[in-house]
Design a protein around this nucleic acid. Sequence first.
DNA 1: CGACAATGTGTAA
DNA 2: TACACCTTGTCGA
Length: 298
Amino acid sequence: MPEGHSIHRLARQFQDVFGGQQLDVSSPQGRFAAGAHLLTGHTLVEALAHGKQLFLRFDHGLYLHVHLGLYGAWSFGGDDSFTGASSIGAPRRVGERETGKATSEDGKGYSGPPAPVGAVRVRLVSAHGWADLRGATTCAVITAAEAATVLGRLGPDPLHNKPGDREEFIRRLRRRKTAVAMLLMDQSVLAGVGNIYRAEVLFRQGVDPHLPGNKVAAAVAGRLWDDAVAVMSDGVRSGRIVTTPRALWPAGTEVAPDADAHYVYKRNGLPCRTCGTAVGLAEMAGRKLYWCPGCQSS
DNA sequence: CGACAATGTGTAA
DNA sequence: TACACCTTGTCGA
């Protein structure tokens, strides 16, 4: 999935290209036909992200709630005014794999959305462009009260970093005996972090992933939060997860090659970029955990 | 072409 | 702990 940075980019994208506009909502695939009927003809007032949850609020008080899950994605297209409204560089796709690649119906020749390709759960159409949702794990029309319930289950989001969030994260992490690597993926402890960010932040802070939450020093927990803020904010800017510094990329390179973008994620068996120890791989609660046994021991 | 894995989560056993 | 969800890119035959 799309970790939290992708969802925050999506919220900005929806606000930019559809905010204040009346939308035609449909479900070409059919599975969301009832929900689409509740929203169509209404105006998008606000797009919100918290962690990996996305909420689109409409003028009659109902919300479209979307969670992309493991492989959901939104794709976009439209005329020049639609593309120009986007503040995130108008990617044609935001989700499991972002791409800036233009599609054939883009730009000057735009004459409405293309025929749906594949299983399009939701299609939003404005006067100037469209958005298609595929593969989401959650897609529902909910009330304000229901949205509040979803938000209430989530921990602080490093991409909001509101006053008190840092302390709240430290409290939630340190009151549990579960391994810190599990807790960083627990959305009620920290909202928006997924498998890549958890591995990379633990490495960058030299924290043993197996250390119980209640054994993580408060200062160390604070550094985990601060690093998540830094690295995820960068992800919102670039649309990619890059956790290595430029010094580790080939000389003269401005953009990190995929092979050099991470310290440990999917680098099992390869030498640690810092100490040379082979990067480890373990299965933890059904997810792959990558770490450096040399740099991250306690 | 089929098999499989993937930035995730909810539910059942 | 297992698997259901049900899309897409990648890799091997």
